[in-house]
Computed example of a mutant assay.
Amino acid sequence: MAVAAGLAVANIYYNQPMLELIEQELPDRLAGAIPTATQLGYAVGLFLLVPLGDLVERRRLIVVQFAALSVALALAALAPNAMTLVVASLAVGFLATVAQQIIPFAAHLASPERRGATVGTVMAGLLSGILLSRTMAGFVAAHFGWREMFWLSVPLSVAAAVLMGVVLPRSKPSSSMAYPRLLHSIWHLWRTLPALRLAALTQSALFAAFTVFWTILAFRLAEPRYGYGAETAGLFGLVGAVGILAAPLAGRFADRSGASRAVALGVAVTLVAWVIFGLWTSLSGLVVGVILLDFGIQAALISNQHIVFALRQDARARLNTVLMGTMFLGGAVGSGAATLAWQMGGWTFVSALGVIFATIAAGLQLAGSRRRA
């Protein structure tokens, strides 16, 4: 399940280190909207597709979604212009939410005392996909071309569909609601569960800070002071992969000591990372900052998932929809705002934007701790 989740989520990050190469081949202002379109597609898929995990048999849903994802990736590889690639990226993001079908299924299969560690393991696979996708895409794009990266991802999605069809057990739907009522119940969960709202809004602000960095990294490294291309931007995924260690560690910590402390720690580490990005402008500063950024984001996410999945056993897919949907809406906002900040004031404005998003997350956690007290 960890492998499949990583293969699925990787598809929404391939375009980030390749963006400069894409803009060279498809010179259009719309090309800059490709990462934002992918994030928006993922957010929409979280709200429209992920709730189906409470309604239909999960194994079949996961297999079908992987198969459809392979078709969307082929469309991206064939895109003749930037507009087509934006539409294809929207579809890729929409269908890549199959990763978020897998995570609540893992939580459902785990025993309560092992839920944090189990989710942490699957999330480690998902984080590997997020980070190593950039390394892989940067290498393939630099040596073979950006279209070839999308073509390579087509058989990977097909293989994930086969893998899940073979190894997953069948599941029984946890809800008998009609689909419109199921979607409406998401609002009820949001309105009645303050712990869900706090987790979702905190993670949204943190993920905005995360996507600010990764959206602009390729442009930052292409500046004359560095002079690096897509392959180097992708290699930063390997550096950030140190953050993979945070996922299982945070899950175990949440099992033993409670999740709120781990969330607060993740927020603090993310804020420190952006301070480093702003003040330590050498390549070493980028390396140290990205390790802290990825560690902080993942520690907070695993802990927030631990909190959320414990709220309602019969609604874990919808709870995950709220958490991850809000998070990726934040990611889309961060990606769009980062592009604007880069155009207006370069890295200084980008760093300030990252600090702002991390500070918002810190303020939310501080208000939540006061309310709990």
Rank of each mutant, 00 (worst) to 15 (best):
L189I: 10
L189S: 13
W190M: 14
R191D: 11
L193V: 07
L193P: 01
A195C: 06
A195V: 02
A199H: 02
A200L: 00
A200M: 03
L201C: 09
L201Q: 08
L201I: 10
L201E: 00
T202A: 07
S204Y: 00
A205V: 09
A205M: 09
L206Y: 04
F207R: 12
A209L: 11
T211E: 09
W214L: 01
T215Q: 00
T215S: 10
I216E: 13
F219M: 09
R220F: 09
A222G: 13
Y226G: 05
Y228L: 09
G229L: 06
G229A: 10
L235Q: 07
F236Q: 12
F236C: 00
G237R: 00
G237F: 04
G237Q: 07
A241C: 09
A241F: 12
V242W: 09
G243V: 08
I244D: 02
A246G: 13
A246H: 08
A246W: 02
P248H: 10
A250D: 05
R252S: 06
A254C: 10
A254D: 02
D255Q: 10
R256Y: 11
G258H: 14
G258D: 14
G258P: 11
A262G: 01
V263Q: 05
V263N: 07
V269H: 06
L271V: 14
V272A: 15
V272L: 15
V272C: 15
V275S: 08
V275R: 01
V275F: 10
I276H: 01
F277C: 07
T281C: 02
S282Q: 15
L283Y: 14
G285C: 12
V287P: 00
V287F: 13
I291Y: 04
I291W: 00
L293N: 06
L293G: 06
L293H: 01
D294R: 03
D294W: 02
F295D: 02
I297N: 14
I297K: 13
Q298V: 13
L301T: 02
L301H: 15
I302M: 09
N304R: 03
I307W: 01
F309S: 01
F309L: 12
A310T: 11
L311F: 08
R312S: 07
